[in-house]
Design a protein around this nucleic acid. Structure first.
Length: 255
DNA sequence: AGCACA
């Protein structure tokens, strides 16, 4: 005879594009959490969105949405119990369909509330006015099902896979100057602002500040606590695609 | 434990 099954049975929830994760360390900053989850889960497939809220009800939880259910399934099984920031991941399928997925299927019904998430960089409608209100809500998301240009997080992972050549060139350039706690960032699109750059760089330890150069579009300085920490950030974000056409070049600033 | 996306 069968005894009642304890805790969560995966079978309770049908397969979904989205993996629901809980038991997350809730003192991790939201952006950091999303970035780390993105990096961890991206090995199982194309990620459309990572949602993490810090509201009382939603803290310690996150939603990772894949383009394909099979990827979600793969990730769910492979990463079940994975030690993430010292705590084992608890994974299930999400109970509901993510908005991105509904959009992908063309069934998105904005009856609740129409969402205007801001893309990092170029606004889909074109033009140079990109970020207005919700600049801190940068999302990793694909707008078009097929050859989408995922923003922020997606681009970061893409930059890894993508720019062998660009990265090599940038790395070569990076070695031109000796280590410095200040980084020199080039090839930024002219729509970037400090807020956006901060989002990218603040996830690294000992981040201090971002400085744009008035009158000098496309470049910025980013300061860290010391040379080594700056170097870590540089390596991680080297060749990051800020937009599909702008690949960041990072080097140590001149002393 | 807790299933959202403004």
């Amino acid at each position: 005879m069968e005894i009642d099954q304890p805790k969560v049975q995966l079978g309770d929830i049908p397969p979904n594009h989205t993996v629901y994760a809980n038991n997350l360390d809730d003192h991790i900053k939201k952006q950091e959490l999303r970035t780390q989850l993105y990096c961890l889960f991206a090995q199982y497939g194309v990620i459309l969105d990572v949602v993490a809220l810090k509201t009382p009800k939603m803290r310690g939880q996150a939603f990772v949405t894949f383009r394909d259910v099979a990827s979600a399934t793969q990730a769910l099984h492979s990463l079940q119990g994975f030690s993430f920031f010292g705590k084992p991941l608890r994974l299930q399928y999400a109970k509901c369909k993510a908005n991105v997925v509904a959009q992908m299927e063309g069934t998105f019904d904005p009856r609740s509330r129409p969402k205007r998430k801001v893309e990092f960089g170029v606004a889909p409608g074109g033009g140079k006015k990109a970020v207005g209100t919700g600049a801190q809500e940068v999302v990793a998301r694909a707008d078009e099902p097929s050859r989408s240009a995922p923003a922020a997080l997606g681009a970061s992972a893409r930059a890894e896979a993508d720019g062998a050549a660009a990265a090599a060139a940038a790395a070569a350039a990076a070695t031109a100057e000796p280590p410095n706690k200040i980084l020199f960032v080039q090839n930024l699109p002219d729509v970037v602002n400090e807020q956006m750059l901060r989002l990218l760089f603040q996830q690294f330890e000992s981040f201090c500040e971002v400085r744009l150069v008035p009158g000098q579009a496309g470049i910025a300085f980013v300061e860290f606590g010391d040379d080594a920490k700056a170097g870590v950030a540089m390596k991680a974000l080297q060749a990051f695609k800020v937009t599909p056409t702008h690949t960041m070049k990072i080097s140590f600033a001149k002393a």
